[in-house]
């Protein structure tokens, strides 16, 4: 998996067709023998042109991934958003202990008393609680768990 680029593309890098591709292909890609031809038709370009543009968008870092998105829970794994209130003077020490767990997938410092927010990704649902308890034992701090109860997905639209 490509590491997301932390650089903004210069203005003018993308044209209207690129933006139309970014919007259209977030919703789905056909399961047909020649899917690029089928996805390209409504965009007014050929399948070959779509392939070339996707290759460029990937090269530029405008897209991070193109392909099937698997549901981790359906695959047997589990995800959980967690948060901790970490005293400022202990922040770096706690961070080292938290990040040492391979189950910690993303971790962000945020503007709140709950100042450390991370996602646990584990092979089994039981792994979430086990990892959270391990972090609590190592740091002496409570790990609050915010599992998703319902998800609303639409995606995001690139403005013209």
């Amino acid at each position: 998996m490509t590491r997301p680029t932390r650089a903004v593309l210069p203005p003018g890098t993308l044209d209207d067709t690129d933006r139309a591709i970014l919007n259209a292909l977030q919703d789905g890609f056909p399961l047909t023998p020649r899917p690029f031809d089928d996805a390209a038709a409504p965009l007014g370009i050929t399948g070959d042109a779509l392939i070339a543009r996707l290759a460029r968008l990937r090269e530029l870092g405008a897209i991070t991934r193109f392909g099937p998105f698997f549901d981790a829970a359906a695959m047997g794994g589990a995800f959980c958003l967690c948060a901790m209130e970490v005293p400022a003077e202990d922040f770096e020490a706690v961070l080292t202990k938290v990040n040492a767990h391979p189950e910690v997938a993303h971790n962000y410092e945020r503007t709140h008393a709950l100042n450390m927010w991370f996602v646990l990704a584990t092979d089994t649902p039981a792994g979430i609680g086990r990892t959270a308890r391990a972090i609590e034992a190592e740091t002496g701090l409570k790990v609050m768990q915010f599992p998703k109860l319902e998800e609303f997905f639409i995606g995001f639209r690139v403005s013209a």
């Binding site: 680029t5 650089a7 593309l9 789905g28 399961l31 870092g61 405008a62 193109f66 099937p68 698997f70």
Partner: peptide, 28 residues
């Protein structure tokens, strides 16, 4: 194609799609 379609019907494949890089697209 049939197996990916079946996985999609069962929700194991959520969708086949692109993931945009918000940051690169100016959403900093």
């Amino acid at each position: 194609i049939a197996r990916l379609g079946a996985l999609q019907d069962r929700g194991i494949v959520r969708r086949i799609a692109i993931a945009p890089n918000h940051y690169a697209l100016g959403m900093t």
